[in-house]
Amino acid sequence: MGAVVDMDAALFAGLCRLGDSTLVLGHRVSEWCGHAPVLEEDIALANTALDLIGQTQMWLGLAGEMEGKARNADALAFHRDVWEFRNLLLVERPNGDFGHTLMRQFLFDAWHQPMLTGLAQSRDARVAEIAAKAGKEVAYHLERSADLVIRLGDGSDESHARMQVALDTLWPYTGEMMTPDATDTALADAGIMPDLVGLQATWDGLVRDVLAEATLAIPDGGFMHKGGKQGQHSEHLGHMLATMQFLPRAYPDATW
């Protein structure tokens, strides 16, 4: 470290981290369509997924544009392999039961919302513009997921138990969000993206308040998984991409 960071490469990586996380989470949430616990939730989940896919188009679109290699958002989404994906490990966790899906959403939203607030102040106007639009959508995501976590945490015995299992399972995947690497630091120093360490306090406060109201206990132990942002993923992502990328990969000369 300490070497001069190529700012274009850093920005490309930073945009892919945002766009890949929204893509992977949007994809995961879309898997619920037609299978949710109740019709009203089926519709609400699809709204969330649609927002995230829309944000993906913007983040990866900008990444492709600034890379200047004629790759658009679709090329980045459908023609990169797992080691080129930069999403957080948290969002590639399988849906599990509704409790896991909801807890994953909340833990991500609680980071995503302040992250976008910071990004809306970016020195890069293109980044700020996308963040401003996405910020409104994600403020609603957070309101919704926090409220549902509270309701199901402090609901029936079974819903409480399931939410606690979901929290215990997903907690070790949250550290990565607030742990900067050289790319994050370079982007923060340049005023393009917020300082991740600074997000920790906001995230902690929000998560602690909501989980307390939900009567859920934050797991002991500080171990945290890492690697997603650098392209080291779980086995789950490969399967997801195999499904998601099948058509453009099988028929590379086709347009759709």
Partner: peptide, 18 residues
Amino acid sequence: ITRAPTLERKAILLAKVQ
């Protein structure tokens, strides 16, 4: 939905099924 060939097709199909 999980195999739609472009991001736009995915969004359109998801909106329709929704």
